[in-house]
């Protein structure tokens, strides 16, 4: 493959409000290659869902893209709207949301929804579309797909519904899948099944996957690379092993240390003081500096550290060095 499937360049999303313009996504850049899973992780309000929605063109008004570009295999898609965008979604981009019921029409059988999507996007006959729909359901692990194709969404369990959504996202053979918290509403055992399924499909089909989640554990298991977001900006971007194992940004490092772990026992958890700033009160300089124990004068002033201006891995003037252990 040449070049990344998805390329996001200096993306800015803004929401005008009566008390000023908010920037839920601020100069974010990343690429996703074919067959790669990029995990986008962050706490609530970090801008991770907003980034995903910007990519698939589902920003709710009044939020809008005000700068930067989004390229799908080199073509800009950030300016598209209406019919062009609708054709792109489904055909070249698939979506998986947290709540499977929002992506399924409760009044149509899953078979109808699958064949409709296939017929709309691919030049095949109705009989062929039905065959493909059954194949898609089989591929996502729905037992007795041939019989279940006539069932309605409410007749499936939560995990099975999410499988149907994945089948729906994949049936038109898109190049990119945006999955927004796909396992958050599911139980642990079902979550493990869905993650395994996503990984398998991504590898077999060479689809690029953007996996948006707040769960570091899910990222560690599923993603190849991970982008950590904080207050709308990228805090850290790198291969998952590196970021999880050797976090460079103090925020990522703190996040890792504050997660209760198997080895920990009853010891006190390390905690990051305070909370993420509200979008109308992002501090000058590095947005993390009020909570950061490494912060120095430079961190409090503009220009703030950005991935691009630092080492491309962590947006920090004083990153944690690899051999320096974070005090536990």
């Amino acid at each position: 493959m040449t070049g990344p499937v998805l390329s996001v360049r200096d993306l800015v999303v803004e929401i005008p409000t009566r008390r000023g313009v908010l920037r839920p996504v601020d100069r974010v850049s990343y690429d996703i290659a074919a067959g790669e899973i990029l995990g986008v992780v962050g706490e609530s309000g970090a801008g991770k869902s907003m980034t995903g929605n910007a990519v698939i063109g589902l920003l709710d008004r009044p939020a809008r893209i005000t700068a930067g570009e989004i390229l799908l295999t080199g073509e800009p898609i950030h300016g598209l709207n209406g019919e062009a965008l609708r054709r792109l979604r489904g055909r070249r981009m698939g979506m998986i949301f947290q709540d499977p019921l929002t992506s399924l029409n409760p009044l149509l059988t899953v078979g109808d929804q699958l064949t409709e999507t296939i017929l709309e996007h691919l030049p095949v006959s109705a009989a062929e579309a039905r065959k493909r729909a059954i194949a898609a359901l089989e591929e996502v692990g729905i037992p007795a797909a041939r019989q279940r194709i006539g069932s309605y969404p409410h007749e499936f369990s939560g995990g099975m519904r999410q499988r149907v959504v994945i089948a729906l996202a994949l049936c038109a053979e898109p190049e990119l899948i945006v999955a927004d918290e796909p396992t958050t509403a599911l139980d642990v055992s079902v979550q493990a099944q869905i993650i395994a399924l996503l990984k398998r499909l991504c590898r077999e089909r060479g689809v690029a996957v953007m996996l948006v989640t707040h769960d570091m554990g899910v990222i560690a298991e599923a993603a190849d690379r991970v982008a950590v977001m904080y207050a709308g900006r990228l805090a850290e971007l790198g291969p998952v092993r590196e970021v999880v194992g050797n976090a460079r940004h103090p925020y990522t490092a703190g996040l890792m240390a504050s997660t209760p772990s198997a080895s920990g026992g009853h010891r006190r958890l390390r905690q990051i003081p305070g909370a993420m700033p509200r979008l109308d009160a992002v501090p000058d300089g590095c947005p993390f500096h009020p909570r950061c124990e490494r912060a120095e004068a430079r961190c409090r002033q503009a220009p703030e550290p950005m991935l691009q201006t630092c080492d491309g891995r962590a947006a920090c003037w004083f990153p944690v060095v690899a051999d320096e252990e974070v005090p536990a």
Binding site: S157, G158, G159, M160, D187, V188, S189, V190, Q191, A192, Q193, I195, A196, L197, D215, M216, G217, V218, A220, E221, V240, R241, V244, M256, T259, S261, A262
Partner: peptide, 19 residues
Amino acid sequence: AAPRMDAFGREVEPPKGEI
């Protein structure tokens, strides 16, 4: 089945069935 922070690219047989 619980996701683990140290389980990069872990390939385990996912559990069978649902509740």
